[in-house]
Write a protein that binds this DNA or RNA. Structure first.
Lengths: 169, 169
DNA sequence: CGGCAGCCTTAAAAAATTTAATTAAAAGAT
DNA sequence: ATCTTTTAATTAAATTTTTTAAGGCTGCCG
């Protein structure tokens, strides 16, 4: 039988100065986000947090007492998903629910001591992940990158809202 | 529609020139990717494609005859997931499997006519999405953005592989 | 007061992904 | 040359996650 050589196909690193175009954006973004989430999830495990929970803690750290719906909207998930996430996190002791005094329909969410303590761990986990991801970036590049990512989200969400209105039958 | 002027004279102490830091990266990336995928999925529906399938078509368009495992690795999913995706896409007529002549263990995957025809639709859908996302970006910004995203993925995947080796009990 | 609308939760259903186990084939060793 | 080990893909089972639909409570307004 013919012998099989399997060398030389491991890395195709010949695209050092590739001219990326707009068409490369969505796959690159998807891939980067997936890798990011993989590493971040692993880092978060040590804090007892699961994927998706970090955003809740950070949102509350920034503005405690957000409503469940507000969190859902901010984090881009549906209401039941947020309910489940909040429920689990409440069971884990990271936060607690409290009905709003003025409007009893609203469920406001507050960080507990544990939750507030976990903020640093999350930031550390995220920081570690972010640092690894941007090892060879300049600070200016990072600022620009974040700025563009936020702009992308804003541009797309404007359209998403528009399309949502279309769904009304 | 859209905002032409953004005076931003609210009594917020944040001006337009928000100083983003490394810590803003992972949430921004996650959010942007989610919004991107939401819009892209909606665009792809018209081609009969579901989420995750576009990457397969585009990979094959770039290099037809990839193995199932190669696709899985490239797209960052586990083998069974790729098997299922390929199976569904084969049933949909977008591609076909063919055992490798030299190594019968390998399943090579080739685009069909339909699959090859869908490339343009995917690129169009992605392009539409990408354009919307980067409405107000310069071309230079886009190139830089993609370059950085690719670098992020590369940096993180290096670590992901490393950690995978750690898992060996 | 009674109906309507908003917000959250629960329940049920659907989908997707991961782990583990199976089949098949190639490479290597005895 | 045969047997063992390793690699690739698939199948099966189970876990997890997300979406849709329905229910319940509250505030608002006629």
């Amino acid at each position: 039988m013919g012998k099989k050589h399997k060398d030389g196909k491991k890395h195709k690193k010949k695209k050092d100065q590739t001219e990326y175009t707009l068409a490369d954006l969505s796959p690159a973004l998807t891939q980067a986000a997936r890798s990011m989430r993989t590493v971040l999830s692993r880092n978060l495990l040590e804090s007892g947090l699961y994927a998706g929970q970090d955003g809740v803690v950070l949102s509350l750290a920034e503005s405690d007492g957000m409503t469940a719906g507000g969190l859902a909207q901010k984090l881009g998930v549906k209401a039941p998903t947020m309910t489940r996430t909040i429920g689990r996190m409440e069971a884990q002791g990271f936060l607690k629910r409290k009905p709003d005094a003025e409007d009893a329909r609203l469920t406001k969410v507050y960080l507990t001591e544990l939750g507030r303590g976990s903020v640093k761990a999350i930031e550390l986990a995220a920081s570690s992940c972010d640092k690894l991801a941007t090892l060879d970036f300049s600070e200016k590049e990072i600022r620009n990158l974040v700025r563009l990512l936020k702009a992308i989200d804003a541009n797309l969400q404007a359209e998403a809202v528009h399309a949502e209105e279309d769904e009304e039958d």
